[in-house]
Design a protein around this nucleic acid. Structure first.
Lengths: 193, 193
DNA sequence: GTCTATACGTAGATAGAC
DNA sequence: GTCTATCTACGTATAGAC
């Protein structure tokens, strides 16, 4: 064979990695197959040796993204006590707000996911529940776990939607302070930073 | 003249109203000018008598949307004490999650707004600040005001991104309960329902 | 597996008749 | 102001040569 047996997998992974950043920066629908392939040095026609359709790439992309995110956010059994607080701080950082291409997929692709098929949304749901369960176990408050995730996603959406750097930082900082306050005031199981 | 002097304004408003629903249902970029015009019984060519470009329609649309939302959320001086709590309950309702076309623009258009120009983002910023200031004054907690807005937007994004109705309702209910709890435990100025 | 060429649809926008 | 026709660009996807 003219190509090594690992070549296809390598190319597929390069395509996924590159598409990930491009989709998170500019939206998935907004970028064409030609541009995605060009970003890894290939032409558009070669795309269909790796995915049957652009939609299939979206599904694979979201699956990978959510797998990465939930692994990072859920943490493993060796994670420190302040794991959740640390995740929230990172999520609500200016760096995250200003670099969507290396950040969480939900604030950028949330609307596109909402309009996608059941497979995509099931994948997202499973990943979200994994994070929620982990945070729930760590903090002892199931409602707060969902609320934390929601607030993180929402704050990043807001931070990216406003114009001034001042307001962007204000939104993120206010969210961080609010979570710190709520945590101190009250969970049934204190696991704060 | 062959058209009444009010005709242009009426058509423009019909276009805005129709585009509003379509954009919130399927995204702004995903729908073409022809389809937008067809939804009010006109053809694509007539669009450019009302807006110089599709982008200009987006700006007008977002401005109107944010004006409507912030008016409703900020409330007027006659609003009852539980105004904020009532807004949050409505925002976090299943109805809102399942009917994006008549709901808040931020969860659907947030990513597109983030990629838009400074004019659009400034408009959004002003509207958000208006709501935040109002809620801040009513609850006496400036951080909580931003956090509440963020949590509302994020919860709706999440609720729409998951597949099962069960999880969708769980996310919304958990967020509502969390806010109720946080409110009872603690703001400096108790203005709860 | 990747290329070029191409089919085919639709996008945003413009020109000129009415 | 609205229409039809059209330009140009780009979208997804396929066919066949290498």
């Amino acid at each position: 064979m003219r190509y090594a047996s690992t070549h296809k997998n390598e190319t597929r992974q390069k395509l996924l990695d590159s598409s990930r950043a491009i989709a998170k920066k500019g939206g998935f629908a907004s970028t064409g197959v030609d541009a995605l392939m060009a970003s890894i040095g290939l032409t558009g026609g070669a795309f269909y040796s790796h995915f049957p359709s652009k939609q299939a790439l979206f599904e694979a992309l979201v699956a990978e993204e959510m797998e990465n995110s939930s692994s990072m956010l859920a943490g493993d059994k060796d994670a420190p006590d302040n794991h959740v607080a640390k995740c929230v701080r990172d999520y609500l950082s200016s760096f995250h707000a200003m670099n969507p291409d290396v950040g969480c997929a939900l604030p950028v692709l949330g609307a596109e996911i909402a309009r996608a098929g059941p497979e995509v949304r099931s994948t997202v749901e499973a990943a979200l529940k994994r994070t929620q369960k982990s945070w729930s176990a760590r903090t002892g408050d199931a409602d707060a776990a969902w609320a934390l995730i929601a607030q993180c996603v929402g704050a990043v959406v807001l931070a990216r939607a406003v114009e001034s750097e001042r307001t962007r930082k204000e939104i993120l900082a206010a969210s961080r302070r609010f979570i710190d306050k709520a945590e101190r005031k009250g969970a049934s199981a204190p696991t704060s930073s």
